[in-house]
Design a protein around this nucleic acid. Structure first.
Lengths: 151, 151
DNA sequence: CACTTCCCTACTGAATGCGTAGGAAATCTC
DNA sequence: GAGATTTCCTACGCATTCAGTAGGGAAGTG
Protein backbone atom coordinates (compact mmCIF):
# COMPACT_ATOMS: atom_id res chain seq x y z
CA UNK A 1 0.00 0.00 0.00
CA UNK A 2 1.87 2.98 -1.26
CA UNK A 3 1.01 6.63 -1.59
CA UNK A 4 2.23 7.58 -5.07
CA UNK A 5 4.44 10.53 -5.80
CA UNK A 6 1.57 12.07 -7.70
CA UNK A 7 -0.70 11.93 -4.67
CA UNK A 8 1.94 13.27 -2.33
CA UNK A 9 2.83 16.11 -4.67
CA UNK A 10 -0.82 16.91 -5.30
CA UNK A 11 -1.65 17.25 -1.63
CA UNK A 12 1.39 19.41 -0.99
CA UNK A 13 0.52 21.68 -3.89
CA UNK A 14 -3.05 21.92 -2.67
CA UNK A 15 -1.79 22.87 0.77
CA UNK A 16 0.21 25.74 -0.66
CA UNK A 17 -2.87 26.93 -2.49
CA UNK A 18 -4.87 26.65 0.71
CA UNK A 19 -2.35 28.79 2.55
CA UNK A 20 -2.01 31.45 -0.15
CA UNK A 21 -5.52 32.59 -0.62
CA UNK A 22 -5.30 36.07 -2.15
CA UNK A 23 -3.71 35.79 -5.58
CA UNK A 24 -3.31 32.79 -7.84
CA UNK A 25 -0.08 30.83 -7.52
CA UNK A 26 2.04 29.82 -10.49
CA UNK A 27 3.01 26.21 -11.00
CA UNK A 28 6.65 27.21 -11.07
CA UNK A 29 6.38 28.86 -7.66
CA UNK A 30 4.74 25.83 -6.12
CA UNK A 31 7.30 23.55 -7.70
CA UNK A 32 10.17 25.54 -6.29
CA UNK A 33 8.68 25.93 -2.83
CA UNK A 34 7.99 22.23 -2.45
CA UNK A 35 10.83 20.89 -4.55
CA UNK A 36 8.67 19.20 -7.14
CA UNK A 37 9.67 18.81 -10.84
CA UNK A 38 7.66 21.60 -12.34
CA UNK A 39 6.56 20.03 -15.61
CA UNK A 40 5.42 17.01 -13.69
CA UNK A 41 3.52 19.24 -11.32
CA UNK A 42 1.80 20.97 -14.22
CA UNK A 43 0.19 17.69 -15.21
CA UNK A 44 -0.90 17.06 -11.67
CA UNK A 45 -2.46 20.51 -11.33
CA UNK A 46 -4.26 19.85 -14.58
CA UNK A 47 -5.77 16.68 -13.17
CA UNK A 48 -6.93 18.63 -10.17
CA UNK A 49 -8.51 21.18 -12.43
CA UNK A 50 -10.38 18.48 -14.33
CA UNK A 51 -11.49 17.13 -11.00
CA UNK A 52 -12.93 20.52 -10.12
CA UNK A 53 -10.60 21.15 -7.22
CA UNK A 54 -8.60 24.07 -8.55
CA UNK A 55 -9.28 26.85 -11.01
CA UNK A 56 -6.64 28.20 -13.32
CA UNK A 57 -5.92 31.46 -15.05
CA UNK A 58 -3.50 31.97 -17.89
CA UNK A 59 -1.41 34.98 -18.65
CA UNK A 60 1.08 37.05 -16.77
CA UNK A 61 -1.00 37.41 -13.61
CA UNK A 62 -2.23 33.85 -13.90
CA UNK A 63 -1.76 30.76 -11.83
CA UNK A 64 -3.85 28.36 -9.82
CA UNK A 65 -6.21 28.78 -6.90
CA UNK A 66 -8.54 26.46 -5.06
CA UNK A 67 -11.97 26.15 -6.58
CA UNK A 68 -13.60 25.67 -3.19
CA UNK A 69 -12.85 26.71 0.36
CA UNK A 70 -10.01 24.72 1.92
CA UNK A 71 -12.42 23.52 4.58
CA UNK A 72 -14.51 21.90 1.87
CA UNK A 73 -11.74 19.92 0.19
CA UNK A 74 -10.65 16.72 1.82
CA UNK A 75 -7.34 15.01 1.32
CA UNK A 76 -9.31 12.12 -0.17
CA UNK A 77 -10.68 14.48 -2.82
CA UNK A 78 -7.17 15.37 -3.87
CA UNK A 79 -5.90 11.81 -3.93
CA UNK A 80 -8.90 10.62 -5.93
CA UNK A 81 -8.44 13.41 -8.46
CA UNK A 82 -4.91 12.38 -9.35
CA UNK A 83 -4.89 8.64 -8.73
CA UNK A 84 -8.06 6.67 -9.10
CA UNK A 85 -9.88 5.04 -6.23
CA UNK A 86 -8.38 5.29 -2.77
CA UNK A 87 -8.00 1.56 -2.19
CA UNK A 88 -8.05 -1.36 -4.57
CA UNK A 89 -7.18 -5.04 -4.42
CA UNK A 90 -5.31 -6.28 -7.48
CA UNK A 91 -6.59 -3.22 -9.28
CA UNK A 92 -10.28 -3.76 -8.61
CA UNK A 93 -12.37 -2.21 -5.89
CA UNK A 94 -13.32 -4.50 -3.01
CA UNK A 95 -17.04 -4.91 -3.74
CA UNK A 96 -16.20 -6.46 -7.12
CA UNK A 97 -14.26 -9.29 -5.52
CA UNK A 98 -15.48 -12.68 -4.43
CA UNK A 99 -13.73 -15.34 -2.41
CA UNK A 100 -14.52 -18.93 -1.61
CA UNK A 101 -13.88 -21.31 1.24
CA UNK A 102 -11.98 -20.13 4.30
CA UNK A 103 -11.18 -16.90 2.49
CA UNK A 104 -14.78 -15.81 2.48
CA UNK A 105 -14.32 -13.36 5.31
CA UNK A 106 -11.39 -11.76 3.59
CA UNK A 107 -13.74 -9.56 1.64
CA UNK A 108 -15.23 -7.82 4.69
CA UNK A 109 -11.70 -7.34 5.94
CA UNK A 110 -10.64 -5.46 2.82
CA UNK A 111 -13.84 -3.46 3.02
CA UNK A 112 -13.14 -2.56 6.62
CA UNK A 113 -9.63 -1.52 5.70
CA UNK A 114 -10.89 0.71 2.96
CA UNK A 115 -13.52 2.22 5.23
CA UNK A 116 -10.83 3.05 7.71
CA UNK A 117 -8.63 4.73 5.13
CA UNK A 118 -11.61 6.69 3.99
CA UNK A 119 -12.44 7.78 7.49
CA UNK A 120 -9.02 9.34 7.79
CA UNK A 121 -8.57 10.90 4.37
CA UNK A 122 -12.16 12.09 4.01
CA UNK A 123 -12.22 13.40 7.55
CA UNK A 124 -9.27 15.71 7.11
CA UNK A 125 -9.56 18.90 5.07
CA UNK A 126 -6.84 20.96 3.48
CA UNK A 127 -7.60 23.66 6.02
CA UNK A 128 -6.97 21.21 8.83
CA UNK A 129 -3.54 20.25 7.55
CA UNK A 130 -2.50 23.72 6.46
CA UNK A 131 -3.37 25.16 9.84
CA UNK A 132 -1.52 22.38 11.62
CA UNK A 133 -4.61 21.42 13.58
CA UNK A 134 -5.51 17.87 12.65
CA UNK A 135 -8.87 16.63 13.90
CA UNK A 136 -8.75 15.03 17.30
CA UNK A 137 -9.30 11.45 16.12
CA UNK A 138 -6.39 11.76 13.70
CA UNK A 139 -4.03 13.69 15.91
CA UNK A 140 -4.46 11.11 18.64
CA UNK A 141 -3.17 8.40 16.30
CA UNK A 142 -0.12 10.44 15.36
CA UNK A 143 0.65 11.32 18.97
CA UNK A 144 1.35 7.71 19.82
CA UNK A 145 5.13 7.33 19.64
CA UNK A 146 4.71 3.73 18.47
CA UNK A 147 3.13 5.03 15.29
CA UNK A 148 6.46 6.57 14.32
CA UNK A 149 8.61 3.47 14.57
CA UNK A 150 9.29 1.03 11.76
CA UNK A 151 8.91 -2.52 13.03
CA UNK B 1 -3.22 2.52 -2.30
CA UNK B 2 -3.50 -0.93 -3.74
CA UNK B 3 -3.29 -4.39 -2.30
CA UNK B 4 -1.09 -6.31 -4.73
CA UNK B 5 -2.02 -9.65 -6.23
CA UNK B 6 0.86 -11.18 -4.30
CA UNK B 7 -0.55 -9.99 -1.00
CA UNK B 8 -4.07 -11.07 -1.82
CA UNK B 9 -2.93 -14.51 -2.98
CA UNK B 10 -0.66 -14.90 0.02
CA UNK B 11 -3.40 -14.22 2.52
CA UNK B 12 -5.79 -16.56 0.75
CA UNK B 13 -3.20 -19.32 0.70
CA UNK B 14 -2.46 -18.76 4.36
CA UNK B 15 -6.16 -19.01 5.14
CA UNK B 16 -6.36 -22.41 3.46
CA UNK B 17 -3.41 -23.55 5.51
CA UNK B 18 -5.08 -22.22 8.64
CA UNK B 19 -8.22 -24.17 7.89
CA UNK B 20 -6.47 -27.44 6.99
CA UNK B 21 -4.46 -28.15 10.02
CA UNK B 22 -3.75 -31.89 9.99
CA UNK B 23 -1.61 -32.67 6.95
CA UNK B 24 0.53 -30.42 4.83
CA UNK B 25 -1.11 -28.89 1.76
CA UNK B 26 0.49 -28.98 -1.68
CA UNK B 27 0.95 -25.77 -3.63
CA UNK B 28 -0.98 -27.27 -6.50
CA UNK B 29 -3.97 -27.99 -4.27
CA UNK B 30 -4.03 -24.47 -2.92
CA UNK B 31 -3.65 -23.03 -6.39
CA UNK B 32 -6.60 -25.01 -7.67
CA UNK B 33 -8.84 -24.32 -4.70
CA UNK B 34 -8.28 -20.57 -4.84
CA UNK B 35 -7.77 -20.21 -8.58
CA UNK B 36 -4.22 -18.92 -8.36
CA UNK B 37 -1.53 -19.59 -11.03
CA UNK B 38 0.38 -22.33 -9.31
CA UNK B 39 3.93 -21.47 -10.31
CA UNK B 40 3.28 -17.93 -9.19
CA UNK B 41 1.93 -19.22 -5.93
CA UNK B 42 5.03 -21.34 -5.39
CA UNK B 43 7.13 -18.21 -5.29
CA UNK B 44 4.77 -16.58 -2.85
CA UNK B 45 4.81 -19.58 -0.54
CA UNK B 46 8.56 -19.47 -0.69
CA UNK B 47 8.58 -15.88 0.49
CA UNK B 48 6.36 -16.86 3.35
CA UNK B 49 8.72 -19.63 4.26
CA UNK B 50 11.67 -17.23 4.30
CA UNK B 51 9.57 -14.98 6.48
CA UNK B 52 9.10 -17.82 8.92
CA UNK B 53 5.35 -18.05 8.47
CA UNK B 54 5.08 -21.46 6.86
CA UNK B 55 7.11 -24.62 6.96
CA UNK B 56 7.55 -26.88 3.98
CA UNK B 57 8.17 -30.51 3.37
CA UNK B 58 9.30 -32.07 0.11
CA UNK B 59 8.44 -35.43 -1.32
CA UNK B 60 5.28 -37.27 -2.04
CA UNK B 61 3.65 -36.57 1.30
CA UNK B 62 5.00 -33.07 1.35
CA UNK B 63 3.43 -29.66 1.16
CA UNK B 64 3.13 -26.56 3.28
CA UNK B 65 1.78 -25.93 6.74
CA UNK B 66 1.73 -22.91 9.02
CA UNK B 67 4.81 -22.51 11.16
CA UNK B 68 2.82 -21.00 14.00
CA UNK B 69 -0.71 -21.25 15.29
CA UNK B 70 -3.22 -19.36 13.12
CA UNK B 71 -4.08 -17.21 16.11
CA UNK B 72 -0.49 -16.03 16.23
CA UNK B 73 -0.19 -14.93 12.60
CA UNK B 74 -1.70 -11.61 11.67
CA UNK B 75 -2.70 -10.56 8.20
CA UNK B 76 -0.05 -7.88 8.49
CA UNK B 77 2.58 -10.59 8.98
CA UNK B 78 1.58 -12.20 5.72
CA UNK B 79 1.49 -8.97 3.75
CA UNK B 80 4.87 -7.88 5.07
CA UNK B 81 6.38 -11.24 4.17
CA UNK B 82 5.50 -10.95 0.50
CA UNK B 83 5.48 -7.23 -0.12
CA UNK B 84 7.67 -5.00 1.92
CA UNK B 85 6.42 -2.46 4.43
CA UNK B 86 2.67 -2.08 4.81
CA UNK B 87 2.49 1.58 3.89
CA UNK B 88 4.95 3.83 2.10
CA UNK B 89 4.90 7.28 0.56
CA UNK B 90 6.72 7.47 -2.76
CA UNK B 91 8.47 4.27 -1.78
CA UNK B 92 9.88 5.47 1.54
CA UNK B 93 8.40 4.94 4.95
CA UNK B 94 6.75 7.96 6.56
CA UNK B 95 9.35 8.71 9.26
CA UNK B 96 11.99 9.26 6.60
CA UNK B 97 10.03 12.10 5.01
CA UNK B 98 10.20 15.79 5.74
CA UNK B 99 7.96 18.56 4.58
CA UNK B 100 8.20 22.32 4.72
CA UNK B 101 5.78 25.20 4.95
CA UNK B 102 2.04 24.56 5.05
CA UNK B 103 2.71 20.89 4.30
CA UNK B 104 4.40 20.35 7.62
CA UNK B 105 1.42 18.62 9.16
CA UNK B 106 1.16 16.26 6.25
CA UNK B 107 3.71 14.01 7.86
CA UNK B 108 1.64 13.29 10.98
CA UNK B 109 -1.29 12.64 8.69
CA UNK B 110 0.57 9.93 6.78
CA UNK B 111 1.74 8.50 10.07
CA UNK B 112 -1.81 8.41 11.40
CA UNK B 113 -2.94 6.72 8.22
CA UNK B 114 -0.29 4.08 8.55
CA UNK B 115 -1.09 3.54 12.21
CA UNK B 116 -4.68 2.96 11.28
CA UNK B 117 -3.85 0.43 8.61
CA UNK B 118 -1.63 -1.33 11.08
CA UNK B 119 -4.34 -1.40 13.68
CA UNK B 120 -6.56 -3.31 11.28
CA UNK B 121 -4.09 -5.70 9.70
CA UNK B 122 -2.14 -6.43 12.85
CA UNK B 123 -5.28 -6.81 14.89
CA UNK B 124 -6.75 -9.55 12.74
CA UNK B 125 -5.31 -13.06 12.79
CA UNK B 126 -5.62 -15.81 10.23
CA UNK B 127 -7.77 -17.69 12.72
CA UNK B 128 -10.14 -14.73 12.91
CA UNK B 129 -10.66 -14.61 9.17
CA UNK B 130 -10.74 -18.35 8.60
CA UNK B 131 -13.38 -18.80 11.28
CA UNK B 132 -15.45 -15.97 9.89
CA UNK B 133 -15.40 -14.12 13.18
CA UNK B 134 -13.66 -10.81 12.66
CA UNK B 135 -12.84 -8.85 15.80
CA UNK B 136 -15.57 -6.49 16.88
CA UNK B 137 -13.77 -3.28 15.94
CA UNK B 138 -13.25 -4.58 12.42
CA UNK B 139 -16.60 -6.22 11.93
CA UNK B 140 -18.31 -3.01 12.94
CA UNK B 141 -16.62 -1.18 10.09
CA UNK B 142 -17.65 -3.78 7.55
CA UNK B 143 -21.23 -3.85 8.79
CA UNK B 144 -21.81 -0.28 7.73
CA UNK B 145 -23.52 -0.49 4.34
CA UNK B 146 -21.81 2.73 3.28
CA UNK B 147 -18.49 0.94 3.44
CA UNK B 148 -19.59 -1.23 0.52
CA UNK B 149 -20.46 1.51 -1.93
CA UNK B 150 -18.06 3.08 -4.41
CA UNK B 151 -18.45 6.84 -4.35
C1' DC C 1 15.38 -47.11 -8.71
C1' DA C 2 11.05 -44.07 -10.01
C1' DC C 3 8.09 -40.57 -8.44
C1' DT C 4 6.57 -36.62 -6.21
C1' DT C 5 6.97 -32.16 -4.37
C1' DC C 6 9.43 -28.24 -3.07
C1' DC C 7 13.20 -24.96 -4.44
C1' DC C 8 15.87 -21.84 -7.37
C1' DT C 9 17.18 -19.01 -11.35
C1' DA C 10 16.09 -16.85 -15.26
C1' DC C 11 13.13 -14.86 -18.42
C1' DT C 12 9.19 -12.22 -20.67
C1' DG C 13 5.63 -9.05 -21.70
C1' DA C 14 2.77 -5.60 -20.25
C1' DA C 15 1.72 -1.98 -17.34
C1' DT C 16 2.80 1.69 -14.30
C1' DG C 17 5.41 5.45 -12.33
C1' DC C 18 7.99 9.29 -12.86
C1' DG C 19 9.51 12.58 -15.42
C1' DT C 20 10.94 15.47 -19.98
C1' DA C 21 10.29 18.15 -24.37
C1' DG C 22 8.11 21.13 -27.28
C1' DG C 23 4.74 23.75 -28.68
C1' DA C 24 -0.23 25.65 -29.06
C1' DA C 25 -3.75 28.50 -26.80
C1' DA C 26 -5.14 32.01 -23.71
C1' DT C 27 -4.40 36.36 -21.21
C1' DC C 28 -2.07 40.36 -19.80
C1' DT C 29 0.68 44.91 -20.43
C1' DC C 30 2.30 48.26 -23.31
C1' DG D 1 -1.26 44.73 -32.41
C1' DA D 2 3.46 43.10 -30.47
C1' DG D 3 5.46 40.71 -27.05
C1' DA D 4 5.73 38.49 -22.74
C1' DT D 5 3.94 35.16 -19.65
C1' DT D 6 1.58 31.25 -18.08
C1' DT D 7 -1.49 27.50 -18.61
C1' DC D 8 -2.73 23.51 -21.54
C1' DC D 9 -1.95 19.46 -24.46
C1' DT D 10 0.35 15.57 -26.76
C1' DA D 11 3.88 12.72 -27.13
C1' DC D 12 7.84 10.46 -25.76
C1' DG D 13 11.46 7.98 -22.77
C1' DC D 14 13.20 5.15 -19.41
C1' DA D 15 13.47 2.52 -15.47
C1' DT D 16 10.95 -0.31 -12.28
C1' DT D 17 7.45 -3.23 -10.82
C1' DC D 18 3.84 -6.64 -11.54
C1' DA D 19 2.17 -10.81 -12.89
C1' DG D 20 3.18 -14.81 -14.72
C1' DT D 21 6.00 -18.74 -17.24
C1' DA D 22 9.70 -22.25 -18.04
C1' DG D 23 12.85 -25.55 -16.86
C1' DG D 24 15.54 -28.00 -14.06
C1' DG D 25 17.90 -29.29 -9.55
C1' DA D 26 17.42 -30.88 -4.57
C1' DA D 27 15.11 -33.46 -1.17
C1' DG D 28 12.01 -36.82 0.44
C1' DT D 29 9.07 -41.45 -0.21
C1' DG D 30 7.96 -46.07 -1.84
Amino acid sequence: MRISARADYAVRAALLLAAEQDGPLKAEAIAEAQDIPHKFLEGILNDMRRGGLVASQRGVYGGYRLARAPEDISVADVVRAVDGPLVSVRGVRPPELSYGGPAESLLPLWVALRANVRRILEGVSLADVASGHLPEFVGALADDPAAWSNP
